[in-house]
Design a protein around this nucleic acid. Structure first.
Lengths: 352, 352
DNA sequence: CTGTTAGCGCGTTCAC
DNA sequence: GTGAACGCGCTAACAG
């Protein structure tokens, strides 16, 4: 083929060898059409005659052709992927958000590339940098607190960016979240209504977990409103592992520091559940001796005995709404509102 | 540049426009070197003079260049990605496997592309097909039961394929696992030693979960060995959601069918934990009235009251060892053993 | 509705 | 140690 570039009669030799896998050209040859037609059958089947479509599909099956997406991305300048940045992948709490995203995006042909930061803004930055290398068509991130470099890279990327799970006045692009702060203000109001005297806020902060920080602020605000004059009680440790057993530790420390507290408000259901189980093991009665409130409404929370009072957040809807926004913009529609507040719901159960 | 293909004096116009993002050529121009050198600095920094290396890096920072991996993949025929196929992403049980993989693979420059099948072999097939489109350099799969088409695609892909979490005599390529069957044989032996009279195996099968099926077989084998003459008791439901509350349901059904059973062996810690919590709620004493054994040693299991007796499996090591195998083969080393048995450990706690 | 041509941004090959 | 040429496999643009 390229033999015209071969000056003399010496036979043309390929300079390089590819995958020697089946390519679109092979399929085209077998189907008796051009490569372009194969490409079109794959991308917009309606725009081709049913007969050619059939022949192409038959050839694809016969050759077991699998399209090379790297080549497709390069040529079309669209990767058909959405980058998803999570603090941790394993946490079932984000799993529903991802499912919400995925259920809406996969049918449209988009794939998710998921990465995790371990709540570390510096790791987030390098994660975003490496994700950018794949030229995703959109970004979805949990959290609104990023390094300046991260913000700038995302802004420069010229693709829709949806932040989530928090609230901020200056999103990079768009925001689908709720106010962790307001949730804790309401939690404290609930505590007051139920007659608790001395609530403590108990948390382990990961350096990059702005949601936990917002919750603390909400607690502080709630306390000054509902318990004026009382000095605010908090027990904050840092960078402990995000596990049930950390809940036990946190409770122990908190009781040591505030032996007369009657309500322990945890920054997460995971810690609250760990504390609850620890109480059970040591024979402490919940909620009569000591009450517990969590955050997040994990699956386990309603099964525990006593069932955990907590704040339910619209995990799945965050993913769904984000996907809707992303799809709309990718289809060229207008962006819709810059910020969407999905709210939360205090779920009063048995533990407080 | 391509002006030589332009026959007349009319000015050359680009027919297409790329990302108009920064490319390697832009960096090269700024650094005063060729694009090749930039590429080399990125891939093998040792092979370049420190001074040019410095200039290139400065140019990269100045232009905020991010390499286009699609182009890189296409040209090099290596994607620097490893495809990971899981039943479900959220399950913390697989999370450690992924972490084991990721801790070994990321430092070597490989990225993971993770997909999930919801325990459905047909979804697995289409997932594998779409993952193949990205031309991963290796595959890691949980499970050994796949459709024939899946097996064939993976075999044709000409890259290392590691199956895991199960045991089989005919892996597609390589296997890092343990015997779910042997684990249940041992569990039944433990039941016998502890004097339980009438064990039941309780499970919800997802259609594609061969591990649960293997566990059932192990239970059957164990029962014929340890309780000869006793008719084997099982309660198997199908395709129930993989949640704590399903454990409650399973326990209720099992007690209905076998009211005099003294030991309930669950196919998963999640169900066992759900059953345990249900007992707690309804005032059934564990293990005195009814004993429970789980499978998997989830994080929650040792925190529960009573703590759950279960089978611990080498979740993280599976990932680590698989990564080691993959790296070795990708570096051109020999494959090592075709099958690796990592074993398991029965963890006797309080619930049985 | 289908074919032709050119080029997406990079890495390999080979010459210097 | 560095540069020039070429092509990886696909799709955009345009013509018919």
């Amino acid at each position: 083929m390229t033999s015209q570039s071969n000056p003399a009669q010496e036979p043309y030799v390929r300079k390089r060898f590819g995958t020697n896998a089946v390519t679109m050209a092979d399929v085209a040859k077998m189907a008796g059409v051009s490569a372009q037609t194969v490409s079109r059958v794959l991308r917009e089947p309606e725009g081709c005659m049913p007969s050619t479509r059939e022949r192409v599909h038959a050839a694809i099956r016969a050759t077991k052709y699998v399209q090379n997406l790297a080549a497709s991305n390069l040529a079309s300048n669209r990767s058909m992927t959405v980058a998803v940045v999570l603090p941790v992948i394993a946490a079932s709490i984000f799993a529903e958000t991802v499912q919400g995203l995925s259920e809406a995006l996969l049918p449209e042909g988009y794939q998710l590339i998921i990465g995790h930061t371990d709540y570390d803004p510096v790791r987030e930055e390098s994660l975003v940098r490496s994700l950018l290398g794949r030229r995703p068509d959109a970004f979805f991130l949990v959290g609104t607190k990023h390094t300046e470099a991260t913000r700038e890279m995302l802004a420069r990327a010229q693709v829709p960016v949806v932040e989530s799970w928090s609230w901020t006045n200056r999103p990079i692009d768009q925001l689908v979240g709720f106010s962790n702060r307001a949730a804790l203000v309401e939690t404290v109001a609930y505590a007051r209504r139920r007659g608790y005297k001395r609530p403590v806020f108990v948390a382990s902060f990961q350096s990059g977990d702005d949601r936990a920080q917002e919750r603390l602020e909400g607690f502080l605000e709630g306390m000054t409103r509902q318990y004026p004059g009382q000095s605010v009680r908090t027990l904050i440790l840092h960078d402990l592992p995000y596990r049930l057993s950390t809940g036990r530790l946190l409770l122990a420390k908190a009781r040591e520091q505030y032996p007369d507290s009657d309500l322990f408000v945890f920054s997460s259901d995971l810690f609250a559940a760990g504390a609850l189980l620890a109480c059970q093991r040591s024979g402490i009665k919940v909620p009569s001796e000591l009450a517990i409130i969590g955050f997040g409404d994990y699956e386990m929370s309603e099964e525990l005995v006593p069932a955990l009072t907590t704040v339910a957040v619209p995990t799945k809807r965050i993913g769904q709404d984000a996907a809707k926004i992303i799809l709309q913009r990718l289809k060229g529609g207008n962006a819709g509102p810059r910020k969407v507040d999905l709210g939360f719901e205090l779920v009063a159960r048995e533990s407080a």
